[in-house]
Design a protein around this nucleic acid. Sequence first.
DNA 1: GGTTCCATACTCGGATATGGACTGTCCGAGTCGATGTGG
DNA 2: CCACATCGACTCGGACAGTCCATATCCGAGTATGGAACC
Lengths: 169, 169
Amino acid sequence: MSRLPSIEPVRMNQGVEWAVHVLLSLAWVDDDRPVSTAALAASYDLPQAYLHKQLQALARAGLLESLPGVHGGFLLARPAEKITLMDVVTAIEGPEPAFKCTEIRKNGMGENAPKSAFRRTCAVHGAMQRAELRWRQSLASQTIADIKEEAEAHAPSAARIAKQAYGRV
Amino acid sequence: MSRLPSIEPVRMNQGVEWAVHVLLSLAWVDDDRPVSTAALAASYDLPQAYLHKQLQALARAGLLESLPGVHGGFLLARPAEKITLMDVVTAIEGPEPAFKCTEIRKNGMGENAPKSAFRRTCAVHGAMQRAELRWRQSLASQTIADIKEEAEAHAPSAARIAKQAYGRV
DNA sequence: GGTTCCATACTCGGATATGGACTGTCCGAGTCGATGTGG
DNA sequence: CCACATCGACTCGGACAGTCCATATCCGAGTATGGAACC
């Protein structure tokens, strides 16, 4: 049930992978009835309590809608076409950029440097921002619906399997 | 000297920012004589011991050359035109990709899914890889020399200031 | 004076503690369905 | 037979520990410098 600790360290939260797969499943189910954390955890063999924590983050971010009660659970808050990978990463990882410029260029150096040299944004910061922007743009250009289509292209049975897994046959 | 702990968590190692600035400084100095960790740490007001650790990583990665002895220190192992931001990030952060696919699609799901469906790489993995590739491509397309030029465009005194900071007037 | 030797200061190199974030777990509040009872 | 109250089970929600990596630091090995001793 619980996974062994990974040998190599992961940079991005494991929750991101889980979240995308869960959103895919909910897109395939395509039902008004919610799916419970227990069912989702079972279908992917994930620790239920921790997956639950990630789903709460998605709900807070407005990607999932949560319904309480005995037949409660989670369902997509909006169509899969309107949910991008950028939304998912932001929901799990938070909105802060990966690279944080601490403006060390202004530290020491004596007071030799004229202040006018620091009007423009730090060149290092700009370069890292450009790269990160490409990453974010690519994430924002890919929706859950896109991934769903791509997966179905090679595994047409995906939707049926997902519905079966959650008893929506 | 030492920095206060940052309020918001940083995703990328702080060492990346330090490393790029150090490489820039060494490019500006442009001298056969090495610059010591102490001088570099002083010029940016960074903790010397920890900066030293990052410089060692750069040396191991082949970006810097280290010279021992009382007048030792570090100098660029190759021209700034041949050092990309991707090289720096890889040296500090390591070569592993940010997103790691654990293939959870194959876990539970009962045994309903045919194994043929898993021949192709995971669609989620592919999507995250595409985004990360954009990031890496942007990093690989920007060299230390590029950033140096950009900085000089807005602060022509940068090279002079750097040389002064390390006593290369 | 020139040469050799040595003590010294300074630098890189790696091994060693600490803190915070990600990981993982638990219990309480709320809700719906089931059940039993009375009309 | 039908309506209603009660009980119970299940789910979301947030609060609570454990583990691992990034952070931060220190000490040892090696080298060039400067000076003293010796020829």
